[in-house]
Amino acid sequence: MKLTNVKDYMVYVELADGAPVNASLEILTRVSRLAPKSGEQVTAVIIGQNVSEGAQTAIAAGADKVICVEKEISQLEEYVQILTAIGKKYQPRVFFFPATQMGKDLVPVLSYKFDTASITDVTDIVEKAEGFDYVCSSYNGNILNEISYEAGFPQIVSVKSSSFKKELDSSRTGEIISEDIPVDRSLIKTELKETVKEIAEAVNLEEAQVVVAGGRGMGSKENFELVKELADVCKGVVGATRPAIESEWISRAHQVGQSGKTVAPKLYIACGISGATQHISGMSGSGYIVAINKDEDAPIFDIADVGIVGDAVKVIPLLIEAIKKEKAQ
């Protein structure tokens, strides 16, 4: 089912606990800058319950139109049915998704339905004379690939969070369109029996101004507490590397890197982190990087603004005291 009469850019706005995820808002802001030049508009799509507040946020972030589907659904197959119907009706030139778990599941399935192709984890959009190229990485972020579509619409891409800056302008206005799209339950072959919440805390790494992260070099769960203390003092959010999470020092909601979150805070303090590419690719966009590591040859020092060669377990308590003193002044 190729689309031939395409126009406008469509952005799927995923909701988490009723609010739009950052990655979707970041895409809206970025695409709203690109759209006017090409005479296109930006349409957001929201599916869920009580979506009106989310729709307003989407408009503030850059949507000209918001298609609202008021429906409580939870399964991939239901989302696929609704988004396929919307794609068919509105014929977008590009269909953007946040590269969340859901977004990454939707993109390949929809690309097959629309007989086109999809690109996962896009980190940049390059403007061309006609349309866009998309940048994504391979080999843990060591190599970047700029990819174009030779033919076929809609172009379907998922965009990694923190790739762009979101800007909310509450004075913006936009049109709200309500769509009622039926879901054919008889086509759904899986059953969602239970949703279990294991991680109670809300970890908003992507929006944090300060991230204090710990890695294998912290040595133990007890020592990892120091990372949390330092984060408290800096009013930051705790991050962690994959080894720290696999050692169960902290929940996986805190993971920064290729297989976790991509962050770009103003200040990033890396404690006992050697700096494997898998981690660096998730935090190298940070404003100011401080690294503490025993190994003076650790690759993290190649990208740090300030590197302290030393045992993080000894350095952090001193740093906490110094920052407390600084803040008290």
Binding site: T116, A117, I119, D133, N142, I143, L144, N145, E146, I147, S148, Y149, E150, A151, G152
Partner: peptide, 9 residues
Amino acid sequence: VLHTEKVYT
């Protein structure tokens, strides 16, 4: 329909 335009570090 995808074409790699450029590969870089």
